[in-house]
Design a protein around this nucleic acid. Structure first.
Lengths: 205, 205
DNA sequence: TGTACATCAGTGAACGCGCGTTCACTGATGTAC
DNA sequence: TGTACATCAGTGAACGCGCGTTCACTGATGTAC
């Protein structure tokens, strides 16, 4: 049965949203077209009315998953600490589907088509720029260096914290990452307050 | 045709070696049992004489890929700089198949069976301990913190350098990582000498 | 040491399931009068 | 505003390919005499 134009637009958004979430949770190969469509409340046959292939879905789901980020930490009086606290929160660690696409799919995007990598590259560049503005340092170069090292450290710590089998080690990785990559040394360790939103780094529209 | 006992032992080693390499290059889902056996010089039918399932192959290939690491940097007079130089070398970035399994499969192991994650956890713990011994710091806790942050930073920087589309940004990520996570600040940037071995972080037997 | 036979690693065809993709059909939407 | 018809989003069956897994068969190995 046909469906209104607004329905179509909504469906498209919903497909991209659930696809982006499922990919982050289970990887590109772990989610089939039918699983995505079912999660979006449709049957798999309708898929090719929206996308020409699964690859195109992956590209666009990456782009939207990278665009849809929470930047509330920027407004904090201590942005680095706020970012590290949000990024390395237990909540973010446990819910990759709602979290940072770079950390969830970082080591898989290399094998994807040009478009997905392009989207990731642009997103990373933007995040480096944003963090460089807020980082301490005598020169723009020093601030940029600090920003790159911080992102690398946060993403690496989160990937390891998730990969590891032992909750105690996961906790140590998150805590240490917050302490080292958060702004003021040792400060992040004591401020145990959790972020208000449930899903760090994802905007809730 | 039957084959000698030594042949069998050699074959098993070779299967694990090529599997570990192929998985790092193409991911667990990107490599089939037949591709592994073909690369090992056998036909796919022989596979189940060695392993009971692909999952068991993944577990054991991870274990062996994590065990077989280059630790030559430990003997250096400046181990942190040596490690960062080796780990963030262009060569390591371009050849994931011969490099660190944590970086190549870090965000995929989460979805694997218990054994693969266990192996990764043990390996990471060991690497933290080793690096902690060689890290600067007033107390064991401070050295351990430094070691964890260094591994997180190195692994994060390598994953991003590989994921990214633009060679210039890849280069910047590697250079910055070496400068920040290498031992003496600014030193790593000038010492442009490449490691002697072709494949960083993999022992060549 | 040499021969006869049991063992079993490897081969390649075959099976079955999952998944990406296609397509004829349906019926609600939206347009033309 | 109301009616008739063309459009087209969605449905669900079907196709085909790839991949994990199985199995009957082969022939070299290694053992028993």
């Amino acid at each position: 049965m046909k469906v209104s134009r607004e329905q179509v637009a909504e469906n498209r958004k919903r497909i991209l949203k659930v696809a982006s979430k499922l990919f982050r949770e289970k990887g590109f190969d772990g989610v089939g077209v039918d699983a995505v469509m079912k999660a979006a409340g449709l049957t798999h046959g309708a898929f090719y009315g929206y996308f020409s292939s699964k690859e195109e879905l992956i590209d666009q789901a990456c782009a939207q998953g990278l665009a849809d980020v929470d930047e509330s930490w920027r407004a904090s009086s201590d942005p680095l600490t706020a970012l590290a606290g949000l990024y390395l929160a237990a909540d973010h660690c446990e819910n990759p589907g709602e979290g940072c696409l770079l950390a969830a799919l970082g080591s898989e995007v290399v094998r994807q088509s040009g478009d997905a990598r392009r989207a990731l590259t642009d997103a990373l560049r933007a995040r480096i720029d944003i963090l460089a503005e807020l980082s301490p340092g005598d020169s723009p170069a020093a601030r940029r260096e600090k920003a790159i090292a911080t992102w690398a450290g946060l993403i690496g710590a989160l990937i390891l914290a998730r990969a590891v089998d032992d909750p105690a080690l996961t906790g140590e990785l998150l805590r240490t990452g917050k302490a080292v990559f958060g702004g003021k040394r040792g400060h992040a360790r004591r401020s145990g307050k959790r972020p208000t939103g449930r899903s760090p780094l994802v905007r809730h529209p």
